[in-house]
Protein backbone atom coordinates (compact mmCIF):
# COMPACT_ATOMS: atom_id res chain seq x y z
CA UNK A 1 0.00 0.00 0.00
CA UNK A 2 1.21 3.50 -0.76
CA UNK A 3 0.47 6.59 1.29
CA UNK A 4 1.57 10.20 0.85
CA UNK A 5 4.15 11.59 3.30
CA UNK A 6 6.20 14.75 3.54
CA UNK A 7 9.87 13.87 3.77
CA UNK A 8 12.68 16.43 3.54
CA UNK A 9 10.36 19.11 2.17
CA UNK A 10 8.98 16.92 -0.61
CA UNK A 11 5.76 14.95 -0.85
CA UNK A 12 6.45 11.34 -1.43
CA UNK A 13 4.30 8.21 -1.63
CA UNK A 14 5.76 5.63 0.69
CA UNK A 15 5.09 1.92 0.41
CA UNK A 16 4.09 0.53 3.79
CA UNK A 17 2.04 -1.84 5.90
CA UNK A 18 -0.26 -0.18 8.45
CA UNK A 19 1.55 -1.69 11.44
CA UNK A 20 5.05 -0.67 10.41
CA UNK A 21 7.21 1.77 12.29
CA UNK A 22 8.44 4.95 10.69
CA UNK A 23 12.02 3.61 10.84
CA UNK A 24 11.20 0.59 8.71
CA UNK A 25 9.01 2.49 6.33
CA UNK A 26 11.75 5.06 5.72
CA UNK A 27 14.47 2.45 5.29
CA UNK A 28 12.29 0.32 3.01
CA UNK A 29 11.69 3.38 0.85
CA UNK A 30 15.40 4.11 0.31
CA UNK A 31 15.90 6.56 3.17
CA UNK A 32 18.72 4.34 4.40
CA UNK A 33 20.41 7.33 6.02
CA UNK A 34 18.09 6.55 8.95
CA UNK A 35 19.99 3.84 10.86
CA UNK A 36 18.77 1.01 13.06
CA UNK A 37 20.97 0.32 16.08
CA UNK A 38 18.55 -1.30 18.52
CA UNK A 39 14.94 -0.95 17.33
CA UNK A 40 13.92 -0.37 20.95
CA UNK A 41 14.18 3.39 21.29
CA UNK A 42 17.43 3.29 23.24
CA UNK A 43 20.28 4.28 20.91
CA UNK A 44 19.01 7.25 18.87
CA UNK A 45 20.54 6.04 15.57
CA UNK A 46 17.11 6.22 13.95
CA UNK A 47 16.48 9.82 15.01
CA UNK A 48 14.43 11.90 12.59
CA UNK A 49 12.77 15.24 13.11
CA UNK A 50 8.97 15.35 13.23
CA UNK A 51 7.89 18.94 12.71
CA UNK A 52 11.37 19.89 13.84
CA UNK A 53 11.44 17.78 17.01
CA UNK A 54 13.79 14.78 17.31
CA UNK A 55 12.16 11.38 17.82
CA UNK A 56 13.30 7.76 17.66
CA UNK A 57 11.60 6.69 14.45
CA UNK A 58 11.59 3.06 15.62
CA UNK A 59 9.07 4.06 18.28
CA UNK A 60 6.66 5.84 15.93
CA UNK A 61 3.97 4.20 13.83
CA UNK A 62 4.39 5.54 10.32
CA UNK A 63 0.67 5.95 9.79
CA UNK A 64 0.44 8.27 12.79
CA UNK A 65 2.71 10.91 11.27
CA UNK A 66 1.35 11.27 7.77
CA UNK A 67 0.47 14.90 8.43
CA UNK A 68 3.85 15.82 9.87
CA UNK A 69 7.04 17.14 8.29
CA UNK A 70 9.63 14.36 8.45
CA UNK A 71 13.28 15.38 8.26
CA UNK A 72 16.15 12.94 7.87
CA UNK A 73 19.81 13.93 7.98
CA UNK A 74 19.73 14.49 4.22
CA UNK A 75 17.01 17.06 4.79
CA UNK A 76 19.54 19.16 6.71
CA UNK A 77 22.24 18.96 4.09
CA UNK A 78 23.61 16.55 1.52
CA UNK A 79 27.04 15.51 0.33
CA UNK A 80 26.74 18.16 -2.38
CA UNK A 81 25.21 20.90 -0.23
CA UNK A 82 26.30 20.10 3.32
CA UNK A 83 25.02 22.11 6.25
CA UNK A 84 27.70 23.93 8.24
CA UNK A 85 26.75 21.77 11.22
CA UNK A 86 27.70 18.69 9.20
CA UNK A 87 30.92 20.37 8.13
CA UNK A 88 31.70 21.06 11.78
CA UNK A 89 31.24 17.37 12.58
CA UNK A 90 33.94 16.52 10.03
CA UNK A 91 36.20 19.40 11.04
CA UNK A 92 36.04 18.46 14.72
CA UNK A 93 36.65 14.75 14.07
CA UNK A 94 33.19 13.82 15.39
CA UNK A 95 32.87 11.32 12.54
CA UNK A 96 34.38 7.97 13.37
CA UNK A 97 32.32 5.04 12.15
CA UNK A 98 29.51 7.42 11.29
CA UNK A 99 26.69 5.07 12.21
CA UNK A 100 25.39 7.34 14.96
CA UNK A 101 26.16 10.48 12.96
CA UNK A 102 22.79 10.99 11.23
CA UNK A 103 21.05 10.83 14.60
CA UNK A 104 23.69 12.94 16.33
CA UNK A 105 23.54 15.59 13.62
CA UNK A 106 19.76 15.81 13.89
CA UNK A 107 19.78 15.95 17.70
CA UNK A 108 22.41 18.70 17.54
CA UNK A 109 20.50 20.54 14.84
CA UNK A 110 17.34 20.53 16.89
CA UNK A 111 19.21 21.80 19.96
CA UNK A 112 20.95 24.63 18.11
CA UNK A 113 17.75 25.70 16.45
CA UNK A 114 16.09 26.16 19.82
CA UNK A 115 19.16 27.28 21.69
CA UNK A 116 21.92 28.75 19.51
CA UNK A 117 24.19 29.39 22.50
CA UNK A 118 24.07 26.17 24.51
CA UNK A 119 26.35 25.53 27.46
CA UNK A 120 28.44 22.34 27.41
CA UNK A 121 26.04 20.83 29.92
CA UNK A 122 23.05 21.67 27.73
CA UNK A 123 24.77 19.97 24.81
CA UNK A 124 25.49 16.85 26.85
CA UNK A 125 21.85 16.77 27.96
CA UNK A 126 20.54 17.22 24.42
CA UNK A 127 22.68 14.35 23.13
CA UNK A 128 21.84 12.05 26.03
CA UNK A 129 19.48 9.96 23.91
CA UNK A 130 22.03 9.21 21.18
CA UNK A 131 24.62 6.53 21.84
CA UNK A 132 28.09 6.61 20.30
CA UNK A 133 30.68 3.95 21.07
CA UNK A 134 33.57 5.36 19.00
CA UNK A 135 34.22 8.96 19.94
CA UNK A 136 33.59 9.09 23.67
CA UNK A 137 31.33 12.02 22.70
CA UNK A 138 34.10 14.59 23.18
CA UNK A 139 34.53 15.57 19.55
CA UNK A 140 30.78 15.49 18.94
CA UNK A 141 30.31 18.05 21.70
CA UNK A 142 33.21 20.00 20.19
CA UNK A 143 31.41 19.97 16.83
CA UNK A 144 28.25 21.39 18.36
CA UNK A 145 30.23 24.10 20.15
CA UNK A 146 32.09 24.87 16.93
CA UNK A 147 28.77 25.27 15.12
CA UNK A 148 27.39 27.54 17.85
CA UNK A 149 30.53 29.61 17.45
CA UNK A 150 29.99 29.79 13.68
CA UNK A 151 26.40 30.93 14.28
CA UNK A 152 27.58 33.76 16.50
CA UNK A 153 30.60 34.89 14.52
CA UNK A 154 28.75 34.99 11.23
CA UNK A 155 25.45 36.11 12.70
CA UNK A 156 23.73 33.08 11.21
CA UNK A 157 20.60 31.19 12.09
CA UNK A 158 20.07 27.45 11.92
CA UNK A 159 18.01 26.51 8.92
Amino acid sequence: MKFPFKVNNKSKDLELLPNETLLHVLRNNDFTEVKCGCNEGECGSCTVLLDGKPVNSCQVLAMSVQEKEITTVKGIGTLYTPHFLQKSFVEAGADQCGFCSPGMVLASYSLLKENPKPTRKEILTALDGNLCRCTGYVKIVDAVEMTAQKLQTNNLEME
Binding site: T32, L79, D95
Partner: peptide
Protein backbone atom coordinates in the same frame (compact mmCIF):
# COMPACT_ATOMS: atom_id res chain seq x y z
CA UNK B 1 48.42 16.77 10.26
CA UNK B 2 44.76 16.97 11.32
CA UNK B 3 43.43 16.10 7.89
CA UNK B 4 39.66 15.62 7.67
CA UNK B 5 38.49 12.04 7.14
CA UNK B 6 38.08 11.32 3.45
CA UNK B 7 34.72 9.68 4.09
CA UNK B 8 33.68 12.27 6.68
CA UNK B 9 31.18 14.30 4.74
CA UNK B 10 29.55 11.21 3.27
CA UNK B 11 29.19 9.82 6.80
CA UNK B 12 27.56 12.86 8.36
CA UNK B 13 25.18 13.37 5.44
CA UNK B 14 24.04 9.75 5.57
CA UNK B 15 25.38 9.01 2.11
CA UNK B 16 27.72 6.13 3.05
CA UNK B 17 26.37 2.61 2.80
CA UNK B 18 26.61 0.05 5.58
CA UNK B 19 25.84 -3.65 5.19
CA UNK B 20 22.12 -3.40 6.00
CA UNK B 21 21.77 -0.59 3.46
Amino acid sequence: QPIEKIDGLALVTGEEKYTDD
